[in-house]
């Protein structure tokens, strides 16, 4: 979600873009993450997948689809909007809310949060606060497509599609078919 805002600005300044993952790479990474989640938790029965809007939700749905195929039963994916829990609300004009949809009671379940890019960790901190008020999960895990480093909080991902070392001036753009009509991860700006 955040990465795409960056991208819009980077596009307008004609920054050079370097594609680091194509659709095949994304597909393979998601398949691997799906299996890693199942392997770690052994069973899909106590799992709740929650994507963080907007791109995290689409990733969560894709992972849920793959998981349903593997497990042979329907596994739902939800969405968790974290806007109201952000620590930077006062720095910008109020922004629109995204949709929150919790497919199942989260008490005693293993919740897997899914986002596109892990950066400062502040989004995940907000998501943990939001979860706290929805119930008491047995455990919370984090899956991200891209980990680009530069954490500002003691947060790490349990499942990572690709570690992408970046500098702070660079921007990571994740494009997904559902929104952007193509699957790709690109780095923009910097000395590319």
């Amino acid at each position: 979600m955040v990465a795409s805002d960056d991208a819009a600005r980077a596009d307008s300044s004609h920054a050079p873009a370097r594609t680091v993952l194509d659709d095949q790479d994304i597909s393979r990474a998601l398949t691997r993450i799906t299996h890693e989640i199942l392997e770690r938790n052994r069973d899909s029965a106590g799992l709740v997948l929650l994507g963080i809007p907007t791109r995290g939700v689409h990733l969560a749905r894709r992972i849920a689809r793959r998981m349903s195929d593997v497990e042979g039963r329907d596994i739902p994916a939800g969405a968790l909007d974290i806007t109201m829990y952000r620590d930077d609300l006062r720095l910008k004009p109020a922004r629109a809310l995204e949709h929150t949809e919790i497919p199942d009671d989260i008490d005693g379940k293993v919740v897997v949060l899914i986002d596109d890019v892990l950066f400062s960790g502040r989004t995940i901190r907000a998501a943990l606060d939001a979860l706290n008020e929805l119930g008491r999960p047995k455990a919370v895990q984090l899956a991200v497509l891209i980990d680009r480093g530069h954490r500002e909080l003691p947060i790490r991902a349990d499942f990572v599609g690709k570690n992408l070392p970046t500098s702070l001036v660079e921007r990571v753009k994740v494009s997904l078919d559902e929104i952007d009509d193509l699957d790709a991860v690109a780095i923009m700006g910097g000395q590319a």
Partner: peptide, 24 residues
């Protein structure tokens, strides 16, 4: 209440804040 009070009180701070938001 959220849309009137939830964001920045002063819209001129928006630009300096952009970097922070990007990193969230």
């Amino acid at each position: 209440l959220y849309l009137l009070l939830g964001g920045a009180a002063d819209e001129t701070t928006t630009d300096e804040a952009t970097t922070d938001k990007d990193r969230a």
